[in-house]
Nucleic acid binder design. Structure first.
Lengths: 199, 199, 199, 199
DNA sequence: AATGAATGAGAGTTCATTCAT
DNA sequence: AATGAATGAACTCTCATTCAT
C-alpha cells in the first residue's frame, strides 16, 4: 500500500474518531461538521470527500456497531434452533455482546443517546434496534420452545429485557457509579431468571 | 378571575400545548419557537412574555410531568417505611403512575425522547429521572427490608426495572403494536417477580 | 398607515432595488443574497422575511416587468380582433411597451440577460417570453386576417421580430452607442414593413 | 504522429466534447470542472494540464465556433467590396454559416446562451458577437454602396437582423417546434427583403 | 503525463432572541 | 400585554484550484 492510501486511511479514521466524539458530546442534531473537521484537523471540504453528508457518517458508524451485534444475535438464535447446548449459546452470546459493546464504548453511547430521538438520527438507530429487539424476541421464543424458559408473551418481555440492559449499559458507559460490571451481570441474570420474589 | 387573566391563562396553555406537540415531533434540539407560536396562534414575541427562553418552557413541562410522579414514588416509599400493607402500597403506586402517564401521553413521550439526549434538554430530564430511579431504589430497599423481596443489589435492579418499564411505555406511546397494556402489566409483574425460569 | 408599515415598505423596495442591481451586474446564477442585503443595508436574515429565497425575488421582479407587458400585448391583440382602427392599436401598443421598458430599464436588462440562460433563472424568464412571443404571433395573424399585412408564416416572423427588437433594446440599455431611439424606431418600422429591397 | 500524441489529442478532444455538453446543460457560471472531467473520464487535475482554468476551455471553444464564422463574414464583405456577383456572395455566405452552425449545434447553443450573460463568460462571447455584428454592418453598407439595398441606418438594421436570426437559430437548436428550416429561411429572406406590407 | 486527495473561501438558509411600536 | 420586523451568528454543503505522488 502506497503512502497516499495510508494517509487517506488515516484521515478517514481520524474523521471517524472525531465524528464519534462529536456525536457523543453534542448528539446527532447538535453535531456540527465544522467541529468534526476541526477535531480531525482536516479542511471542511475534506469531510465531504469521505461522507456525502453528516447522516452518511452516522449511518456508517451505526453499521459498524450494530452490524456485528445483530449478527451475533442471529447466530445465537440459529444455534438455539439447532441443537447446540443452550448454556454454551448464552455464554457465547453474552461474551460477543460484551466484547462488541466494550470495544466501542463511545459509539455505543452515541447509539443509546439517539435511540429515541426525533429526526433522521433517531430513525436510523431505531432501524437497527428494531432488529435487535426482534432477534431477542426470537431467542426467547426458541428458548421457550426448547423448554429452557417458562412460556410468556415474548414481545413485551424482550422489550423489557433490552430496555433494562440498555439502561444499565448506559449507566455504565456514562460512568454513573455504583455499577460494577460483575455485580450487574449477576443481578441481571438473577432478575430475569428468578425475579425478585423471596425464596 | 377577570377576563384578562382568563386570556392570559388561555394563551399560556395554548403555548404549553403547542410546545408539547412541537417537542414531540421535533425533539428539544429541533423544536423551533417559530412553529410553537404559529401553532399557538400567538406572536413570536409573546412567547418570551411567558417563558424566558425555549428551555424555560421545557423545564415547566417537565415539572408538570415529573413533579407528581416523584411525589407518588416518595409517598410509596414512605408508606413502605411505615407499616402500610404492601399490596395496597404497590397497587396505589401503580394506579398513580398509570394515571399520571396515561393522562399526559404526549408529554411522557417527550420526556422519554430526551432522556438520553445531549445538551440542556437531556440534562433537564436526567435531573428528574435520577430522582425517579433513586426513589425506585429506595422502594426496593424498603421492600427487601420488610421481607417482601429477596435481597439483591438494589441500584442495578432499580435501573433495570425502570429501563424495562420505560421501554414498554415508549412502545405503547409510540404505538409500536403488539403491546396490549393488560398483557404488558401482567408480564412485567411476572418477569420481575418470578423471572423466566421454568416453574 | 403606521410608521411600521412605512418602514417595511421602504425596506422591501430597498431590497427590490438592490436585487435588480445585483442581478444586473452578476446575473441570476452569480447574484448573491449577501451582496443584495449589503446594498440594501439590511441584515442577512431580513431578506428571507420578504422572499422565501433568491428565486422568489427574481420571480416577483419578472412579474412586475412582464405582467403589464403581456397585458398590453393582449389588449392590442383583442383590439385588432375587434374593429379598432389599426394605426391606433399599433401606436398605443408601441407607446405602452416603450413606457414599460423605458420605466424599468435595469429590470428589462436583467430579463434580457437571463432570457437564454441555463437553470431556473432562464426557465422563469422563458415562461414569460413564450407568452410575449405567442401574443406577437397572434397580433401578426390578426393583422394578416384584417388585410393589414401580407400573408406569411407568423411563428418564425414573430420570433424574428421579437429577436430583433430585443437585440436593439439590449443595445440601447447596454449603452452600446450609435443607437438613437428615434432612428432605431423608424428603421425598425421600415425594415419590418418594407424590407431592404430597393425602391 | 506517435501513440503518445494520439492519446493526448484524444484526451483533449474528450475534454472539449464534455465541456461543450456541460456548458450546454449548466451554462458558463453553472458548469463545474468536476462534471466535465467525470464525463471525459479523466482525473480532475488532468483538466488543468490542458486548460489553465475553466475560462480557457470556454475561450478555445468559442474560437473554434466564431473564428471560421467571422472569417466567412469577412470574406463576404471583401467579395462585395470587390466586384464579385452579389447573388453568389450571399449564397456562399449563407451556405458557409449554415454549415458552420449546423456542424456544431451544441456549441452554437452554448454561445447563444451566454451572449448576454453577466461575467467573464458573457464578455468572451460578446467580444466575438461584436465582430459578427460589425461585419454584418459592413456587408449591409457595401450592399447599399453597390445599389443592392436601399439606403438605411446600417447599425440598427444589422443588429435587428442578427438578433432575429439568432432568435430563430436558438429556437431551432432548442427544438422549440414549428420552425422548419426551409420555411424559416424563406421567411427571413422575405421579411428582410420586402417587409410585411401588402402587395 | 496523469492522478485525485486536499484545501478553504464563500454560497444559501435557519432561528433564538430583541425591541420599537 | 401583545406584536412581528429585524438581527446576525451559525450551519451545511459546493467547487475551482493546487500539488505531492
Amino acid at each position: 500500500m502506497g503512502r497516499r492510501e495510508d494517509k487517506k486511511l488515516e484521515k478517514r479514521s481520524r474523521l471517524d474518531e472525531a465524528g464519534v466524539q462529536e456525536l457523543l458530546s453534542a448528539g446527532y442534531a447538535g453535531a456540527t461538521v465544522e467541529r468534526i473537521v476541526a477535531a480531525a484537523d482536516v479542511a471542511r471540504g475534506t469531510f465531504y470527500l469521505y461522507y456525502s453528508d453528516k447522516h452518511a457518517l452516522f449511518a456508517v458508524l451505526l453499521e459498524r456497531l450494530y452490524g456485528p451485534l445483530v449478527a451475533a444475535l442471529a447466530t445465537a438464535r440459529d444455534a438455539l434452533a439447532a441443537d447446540t447446548a443452550p448454556p454454551v449459546v448464552y455464554a457465547e452470546l453474552g461474551e460477543a455482546l460484551a466484547t462488541l459493546i466494550g470495544g466501542q464504548p463511545a459509539l455505543t453511547q452515541v447509539a443509546l443517546r439517539e435511540a429515541r430521538a426525533a429526526g433522521p438520527g433517531g430513525e436510523a438507530v431505531r432501524a437497527w434496534t428494531a432488529q435487535v429487539e426482534g432477534l431477542t424476541e426470537e431467542i426467547l421464543a426458541a428458548s421457550v420452545e426448547r423448554g429452557l424458559l417458562r412460556p410468556h408473551a415474548v414481545r413485551p418481555v424482550a422489550l423489557a429485557i433490552v430496555g433494562g440492559v440498555e439502561r444499565l449499559t448506559w449507566g455504565w458507559l456514562a460512568q454513573e457509579g455504583g455499577l460494577d460490571p460483575a455485580v450487574v451481570t449477576m443481578e441481571l441474570i438473577g432478575l430475569f431468571t428468578y425475579g425478585l420474589a423471596r425464596g
